[in-house]
Amino acid sequence: MTPDRKLAIICSKGSLDMAYPGLILANAARMAGVDAMLFFTFWGLDIVNKAKVERLHISPLGNPSMPIPAMIAGLPGMEAMATRMMVKEMDRLEIPHVAEMLDILDQAGAELYACQMAMDMFKLEKSDLVPQVKEVISAMDFIDKSEGAQVIFI
């Protein structure tokens, strides 16, 4: 509908609750005919890291939206339990898992990029990433590619 509109989303966090907003927004953009690109940097690389994509967690520790006392939230197993509960609820609502979201985005024509500097920091190679990542680019490349886009930082 709006051929010139473009969304560029920077995903800098790798927890489950920080992964979905960017993925859902990019998908909504494509559904509405708006171009979308995602730039995964720092912990956001976990979202496109083959070894981690199906193991993203949600942390109840230091999370004011989860009404669990910090002393209890820090106990072993609490994070896994919070994650299990959230994944179960998302399954009930038929929300696709992160790996499937990445495939949907790829098929929908969204462009996925990984940050070169973060890759170096975490000693990752392109082959460590899911195949939907189009290219590993520098921050300056991102600035070029996102020209004219509305930028969202997550």
């Binding site: 509908m1 051929p3 909504a28 494509r30 559904m31 509405a32 005919g33 708006v34 949907i104 098929q107 929908a108 024509g109």
Partner: peptide, 15 residues
């Protein structure tokens, strides 16, 4: 999904 976007390139969600 890919075919759906090819059929309605300007946004299948609305079109």
């Amino acid at each position: 999904m890919k075919e759906l976007y090819a059929l309605f390139p300007k946004g299948p969600g609305k079109l």
